[in-house]
């Protein structure tokens, strides 16, 4: 049987971010490359943040998913450059995040002290305020909506 890149990508579509299970690693932009040489599969991923603790689990999940599909000869490589950015998050990924209750990344914070404008993922209102710059994970900040009074997470632009 010949292994193809398409086949591997299909298997990897079942690998999700352990912290945000609605997103696949492809949606998130963590999956950078798939290469196949005969039966040997090389998957290249890139970390979101330097200290992202989900990377070890993602690496293990990739190997497990490929092995379950009969692709035993797999290697996962980690590459830092080019540095991951929230711009790599797919449109589909942004929609899934919003539906899950997390406001997708807005503009990149370029100036110190400037706050991005974020819409509430529940009611869509832009009357929102940041409660804390850091939340349950490094990649999110904590917000609340003044219109529907719901708190929500925002995936920070990075």
């Amino acid at each position: 049987m010949v292994t193809t890149v398409e086949q591997v990508r299909e298997v990897l579509a079942s690998v999700h971010d352990p912290e945000i299970p609605v997103l696949t690693i492809d949606d998130l932009g963590v999956l950078r490359d798939v290469a196949v040489d005969g039966t040997h599969v090389t998957v290249t991923i890139t970390p979101t943040y330097s200290g992202c603790p989900a990377m070890d689990e993602i690496r293990a999940d990739i190997v497990t998913a490929l092995a379950a599909a009969g692709l035993d000869d797999a290697e996962v490589r980690t590459e830092l450059a080019p540095a991951w950015t929230t711009d790599w998050m797919s449109e589909d990924g942004r929609r899934k995040l919003r539906e899950y209750g997390i406001a997708p990344p807005g503009e990149l914070l370029l100036q110190i002290g400037r706050r991005p404008e974020i819409s509430c993922p529940q009611c869509g209102s832009s009357d929102t305020e940041e409660m804390a710059r850091f939340a349950s994970t490094s990649c999110k900040s904590m917000w609340r909506c003044r219109a529907c009074r719901e708190p929500f997470d925002h995936f920070k632009a990075h």
């Binding site: 970390p47 943040y49 330097s50 590459e79 830092l80 450059a81 080019p82 540095a83 991951w84 950015t85 914070l109 110190i112 002290g113 710059r133 850091f134 490094s138 920070k156 990075h158």
Partner: peptide, 17 residues
């Protein structure tokens, strides 16, 4: 340079905090 590419974005948040 690759490590720096990641770190620069992280410490921008640290400075703001």
């Amino acid at each position: 340079a690759a490590i720096a590419g990641k770190a620069v974005k992280e410490v921008a948040y640290h400075l703001d905090h």
